[in-house]
Simulated scan of single mutants.
Amino acid sequence: MAGPEHGSGPETPAGAIPDAHISEHVRERLDEDPHLEDGAIDIDVKDGEVTLSGLVDHPHDKQRAEECAGSVRGVVGVRNNLRARPHPVPPQSDLA
């Protein structure tokens, strides 16, 4: 009588890091960065390629998030679909 095989999820090539583990490590890296808002970035991983989506506070945060994701072992590429939140323009001063 054969039982279910251990680890019967999607197969990964020998030595490859499972997408779920990559996703966890990318989340940890993003959460460790003090300039990025916790949990505001969605992460999807397929065959080692990370897709980032959501909103960040500043345009340079898009690059920070991409660098964090790309530094994780097992990541083969990063698709950066992040958008910077629009910031209201401060009213002009009446001082002229």
Rank of each mutant, 00 (worst) to 15 (best):
S8T: 03
A16T: 12
G48I: 01
I41P: 01
P4Q: 14
V78I: 13
D47Q: 15
L36N: 02
R85D: 05
A69G: 01
K62Q: 11
H58D: 00
H58P: 00
R29G: 09
D44E: 06
L82C: 05
S23K: 13
V89F: 04
D44F: 08
A69R: 09
R73T: 10
G15E: 08
G15T: 08
D61P: 03
E24D: 15
R79F: 01
A20M: 15
D38L: 03
D61T: 02
Q63V: 15
V26K: 06
R79I: 04
A84T: 05
P88S: 12
D61K: 06
Q63G: 09
D44H: 10
R27I: 05
P13D: 07
L30I: 13
E49R: 10
S93P: 09
D33S: 07
A20F: 09
G3C: 04
A14F: 15
V26D: 01
E37I: 10
H87L: 11
I43N: 01
P4N: 14
A20W: 14
S23F: 00
D42H: 06
L95G: 04
G54C: 05
V72S: 08
G9N: 03
I22M: 09
D94G: 13
L82M: 07
Q92I: 03
R85H: 13
P90K: 12
I41F: 03
A2P: 12
P88E: 15
V72A: 07
H58W: 12
H6I: 03
H60T: 14
Q92F: 09
H58M: 07
A84K: 07
G39Q: 02
V89T: 10
P59F: 11
H60C: 04
E28S: 04
A40P: 02
H25T: 09
H6P: 08
L55K: 12
S71P: 03
A65F: 03
E66A: 15
P88I: 13
M1A: 10
G74C: 01
P13N: 10
P13Y: 04
H35C: 05
G9C: 06
G54Q: 08
M1I: 11
A40E: 12
T51R: 15
D44V: 12
L55G: 07
S93M: 04
V50M: 03
P34L: 11
A69K: 04
P34S: 07
L36I: 10
L55C: 00
A96P: 02
N81V: 01
D33I: 08
E32T: 11
R83M: 12
D19F: 08
Q63I: 14
K46R: 15
H21M: 07
V26Y: 04
H58L: 05
V78D: 00
A65P: 04
G7P: 05
P4I: 13
Q92L: 10
R27Y: 06
H25K: 11
V76P: 00
V56Q: 10
P91R: 09
L52G: 07
V45T: 05
E11A: 13
N80L: 02
D94V: 14
E28Q: 04
V56D: 03
S53H: 11
H6K: 09
S53C: 06
L52C: 01
D47I: 05
G70C: 08
V78S: 05
E37T: 15
T51A: 12
E49K: 14
P4F: 13
H21W: 14
E5F: 09
Q63N: 11
E32D: 11
S93W: 09
S53P: 11
V75E: 03
P4G: 15
E11P: 01
G54E: 07
P91Q: 08
V72N: 03
G48N: 00
P86Y: 10
